[in-house]
Amino acid sequence: MRVLVAEDHAILARTIATGLRRQSMAVDLAASGDQAERMCLLAPYDVLILDRDLPVMTGDEVCRSLRALEDPPLILMLTAAGTLEDKVYGLEELGADDYLAKPFDFSELVARVRALSRRAPTPPSVVHRYAGISLDLARHEARVDDRAVELTPKEFAVLQVLVEARGEAVPHRELVRSVWDENLDPRTSAVRATVSRLRGKLGVPDLITADAGEGYRLCR
């Protein structure tokens, strides 16, 4: 799940992002309303956690703007404006999908984000196949030579990128951009560690090869 946190309080934004990443979510940050709007136009976020009191462009303006999109992210307003009137206005007039007042319990925030993600339309079953691997994208199920393989969300996402490349090399930076979030240092060992675990779970050590200077590819 990819989440954008639009919050101008830097410490709170980093705290929320860290907690959501520990829940296996990819999280980006925006410190102003215009930045949040721009990022939502450039990337397909599943959920936008939106403060109403943002600089340059208010959260209210962002919400109205995104609601005009053909496929807007689900919006959770997270704000100090917590009266009943504020909540009704945010949900009914602005079109937010959910509303949570500050201060809040983090476990409730996680539960609400997950509940919103379940409200997204379920895509038709799409199965991608290559090199003996089949991936059911709707059910998040992976099989190798008809053997079920249990994968974490990150492992599944990495394998999906490689399967869709159909034997072409996928650069390290492209995997970082597609599977993690903009906060991840591209020099990190996270990709190598995930690919290493994938090799072990797939049971075919040479199925994923690393080409120096090019990236990772499926080779079978």
Rank of each mutant, 00 (worst) to 15 (best):
K87I: 01
R173H: 11
C219A: 10
V127H: 10
R114M: 07
M57R: 05
D206Q: 15
T79F: 04
I208C: 08
E150T: 11
E155L: 02
T122E: 14
E150I: 11
G215E: 08
L218N: 04
D34P: 09
G213I: 01
P73Q: 05
L41P: 07
A96C: 09
T15L: 11
P72L: 06
A193T: 15
P205Y: 05
I16A: 07
L50Q: 02
P73R: 06
E93R: 00
V195M: 06
S189Q: 12
V170L: 11
V126H: 06
T83A: 01
A111M: 04
H9F: 06
I208L: 06
G33R: 01
L4M: 01
S117Q: 09
G33N: 04
Y45K: 12
C63M: 04
R14H: 15
A80K: 08
S32W: 00
H172D: 11
E37L: 13
A10D: 14
P186Y: 00
A193R: 10
L91I: 04
Q35M: 12
L91K: 00
G200W: 07
V56F: 05
R22I: 05
L202D: 05
L100H: 03
G200T: 08
D211E: 15
A142L: 04
V113D: 02
D105L: 02
G90Q: 06
L198G: 09
